[in-house]
Computed example of a mutant assay.
Amino acid sequence: MGDIIEFTTSPSLGLRSFKVSSSGINFDVKTADYATIILSRTPLKKDITLVRIDNDRSWIGINPRDRVTAKTPDIIAGNFYSRLWLSWAGDNISLGKDGFLEPVLKYSSKTPKYMYVTFLTEKGYHHTVHWKVELPPLLKEPPMNNISKGDVHWVPTNTQLPDDVLIGGFEKENLYIIRANHRGSFTPGKFVPSEGCGYLAWGGEAHEKTEFEVLCGYNCEWVATGDDRIPVGAVEGGYSEVRREVLYVGRALYYGHIIPGKVQPSHRVCYIPFNGKEIAVKNFEVLTVPSKNRYANKYILPNHSNHMVDMDDEEFDVSEEEEEDGIMWQ
């Protein structure tokens, strides 16, 4: 519970505005006429949505054309306080009575999260509104700390998993990421604990492995992609048997399962081992290690996510201003 702020608004007394970090408030209001609340992203400058509370008809909206209205008899009174609530969670602004979950008014809004709530009596209407507002504590955004441990690394093993092993998927149980030698390749795949062995997708089939390396650590994230778009910082899982093309650690959703496998950029798919077969999936995720570093021969295109694009030096000229903004690699 936050602080209770009691105040009065009128054309002569002016309005009261508060910055609110939550997505709703509880308040008590007393007036013989009607009360007005304004929600805005900045202090009464733009993205304004009005909430009118009236015994005849209440409404919420930005302008008369898009208002949502409802008959609300006895919602407020001039001789005692009425307790109400107002929320703006998700895409809806809702007004309701204390003790009732169902709102009396619900307005669909695509406006960004509101930060300011203003209570007022509109100009030209000579009446007074008494308020008691329960303001939640103003929460500061916690600082983000960079992870300095938990770097991903491969550990040789068989069926005994290390303590910091990385969970890579789920198929009736947790699956883990492995890699092993197979026919001249070093291929990423999955480990199934209940079966005590791993599986690699290769040559149209899933091949069983009992000697392999397992991926450990936690300073990593999955990035959705497809085709031959490989995100910056992608974790290398091995190489192919032909030309030793780099294989990346990937995973894909298949029949409700999330299955680790290998991403071979030249093939533009993620191969996963499933039910004894090698399955090719076009849309997949690639495991990446977050980093501010960029490859010297790669450039991150603005508004193109974080995929690496090959660039020749003569194809791109960077101004000093862009270099200072950190657009190019370090």
Rank of each mutant, 00 (worst) to 15 (best):
G2E: 02
D3M: 11
I4E: 04
I5R: 11
T8V: 14
T8F: 00
S17H: 04
S22L: 04
S23E: 10
A32T: 13
I38D: 06
K46R: 12
K46T: 07
K46C: 03
T49V: 14
T49G: 00
W59Q: 09
I60W: 02
R65L: 07
T69M: 09
T69P: 00
K71P: 12
T72D: 09
T72S: 11
L84K: 02
S87K: 15
D91N: 13
D91V: 12
I93D: 05
E122P: 11
K123I: 03
H127T: 09
H127N: 07
H127W: 14
T128F: 01
H130K: 05
G150V: 01
V152N: 01
V155A: 00
L161F: 06
L161M: 12
P162Q: 02
D163E: 14
D163V: 15
G169T: 11
N174V: 07
L175G: 04
I177A: 01
I177D: 00
G184K: 08
V192Y: 13
A201N: 05
G204C: 08
W222L: 08
T225I: 11
T225E: 03
D228E: 12
R229V: 14
I230W: 06
G237E: 08
S240F: 07
V242M: 09
R243W: 09
V246Y: 05
L247R: 03
V249H: 01
V249C: 05
G256Y: 06
I259Y: 01
C270K: 02
C270Y: 07
F274V: 14
K277P: 15
E278L: 03
K282M: 07
N283G: 07
E285S: 10
R294P: 11
R294N: 10
Y295F: 15
A296L: 13
A296H: 08
N297H: 09
Y299E: 12
P302A: 06
N303C: 02
S319L: 07
E321S: 06
G326N: 06
W329I: 10
